[in-house]
Design a protein around this nucleic acid. Structure first.
Lengths: 275, 275
DNA sequence: AGAAGGACCAGTGGTCCGTA
DNA sequence: AGAAGGACCAGTGGTCCGTA
């Protein structure tokens, strides 16, 4: 119900309308081309009309592999929603598939709405909550059917999200920013402070993203370096795989911390990690 | 240490010696061609000498795919133990790879040692414990290295077991009998009774295996049909994936139980599962 | 006929790199 | 240059079926 609030919000002022809306409308109650939106956090309410002309630039979807799959279609895993995109997939020279990238993220303060063709970090984090909702739906369907029930956001969940119309959710993106979301979950104060600092300095998203690692490693240090336990213990984080790089950073830091400790105590204690 | 006890036991009287011994000897302390064995349960001690001539029938390992992988070898995941099988893999017309199947299982009572070229069910269950040991080793290596840590017996664990010399452990076999082991874990009394009954009737392993499903479904029925919870709650069972067929049986039974309940209450209540 | 297990295969986790 | 995400790929869970 309130699921589409934030992403809608983030699209504020968007003239090139992403394909997602097509199904999104159905998902949010079916306004038929107009969305109702509310604000989150401490910023005021926003409404946006998105009427007649949807979609902007038309770009053809690439295909590196050539002939395979996709055409048969139909009886897939969770075939809810209507038989979407009848014009898609076929071999005809017809319509031409339209798709568009999401606006890039910029570093925003908590509660701040990104202006221009940008998305803010509240929106980013909201995508993680949406994924959680999709996971919960997948889980309840699986339980209903007596099938294996995923505990994490798996490929299956991403596929489900896409079928449900959330075409703006994809695996590479979500995986890319997981640790940023983790910091947001584990220490919102620190996360907010980091956002403000990086916004003020005019840093780009990549720099902010990189900077999110360090405070997480510090948190891990306090908790015995068990980053898996930290994730799995947190109700909203437990459904995300620990990112490889975060795991590696924690391991490296633990090792060098241990080496330092052993040197400071008994000289060349640990062996091969000395200097 | 005592890990190799049972499987050694089960090979009692075995003249065609499986390849596994090669590494197994190293694992169990390296007697150089002779094993020391002890009995388990309530049967007496057994010792078996396995001297000079190992391996019996020589069978060539199949290869359906033809040219691929395997030759390069070396830097794999957990390369402990020595560089095993130097004669294996190469393209030469030389030695000829020897391998042998495990003896088939027969239905034995608890504590009973299978005679002849057979293995007993205590041995079968012992293999599950061995897999658990291997998993624990894989886990501690992974933790040491700061890598992802498996919670289940995965392909990685089977690979590790093989490298550690337990060539008699393989995925299809372990998966095939998981539910039998589950019954053994969850209700040893019932499991033992079933074994005695099927032995007495002279049933084969397949029949016994099939019969293991029913009591498990009954257990699930008592526990709200949540077979996953039942597995995950049990310390030794939690590391095994719930077998598909067991899951399906539980689901089917739950459905028909629900249907029956609803008919007995309010006539044709449930809808499309009536009769 | 009954059983053990190599090999296969669809779909996974992970992320690179062609794209805009 | 910075970023979004389609597509790829090695290794997974699952089990079939050629084997003995």
């Amino acid at each position: 119900d309130t699921t589409n609030t934030l992403d809608a919000l983030s699209q504020e002022g968007l003239s090139e309308e992403p394909v997602q809306q097509e199904n999104e409308a159905a998902g949010s109650g079916g306004g038929g081309g107009a969305w109702e939106m509310v604000a989150i956090g401490n910023c005021g309410g926003v409404k946006t009309k998105q009427g007649g002309q949807r979609r902007g630039k038309i770009i053809r979807v690439r295909g590196r592999v050539g002939s395979s799959s996709q055409v048969g279609g139909g009886d897939d895993n969770y075939e809810n929603e209507s038989e979407d995109d009848p014009e898609n997939g076929g071999g005809g020279a017809g319509g031409g598939v339209e798709r568009q990238r999401e606006h890039p993220f910029i570093v925003t303060e908590p509660g701040e709405v990104a202006r221009g063709k940008k998305n803010g970090l509240d929106y980013l984090f909201h995508l993680y909550e949406q994924c959680r909702d999709f996971l919960i739906q997948v889980q309840s369907i699986a339980k209903e059917r007596g099938e294996k029930c995923p505990t994490k956001v798996t490929n299956q969940v991403f596929r489900f999200a896409k079928k449900a119309g959330a075409s703006y959710i994809n695996k590479p993106k979500m995986r890319h920013y997981v640790h940023c979301y983790a910091l947001h979950c584990l220490d919102e104060v620190a996360s907010n402070a980091l956002r403000r600092a990086f916004k003020e300095r005019g840093e780009n998203v990549g720099a902010w993203r990189q900077a999110c690692y360090k405070p997480l490693v510090s948190i891990a240090a306090q908790q015995g370096w068990d980053i898996d336990a930290i994730f799995n213990t947190h109700p909203r984080l437990a459904i995300w795989y620990v990112p490889t790089k975060l795991r590696q950073l924690c391991h490296a830091e633990r090792s060098s911390a241990a080496a330092a400790a052993s040197t400071s105590v008994g000289g060349s204690g640990g062996g091969h990690l000395q200097f």
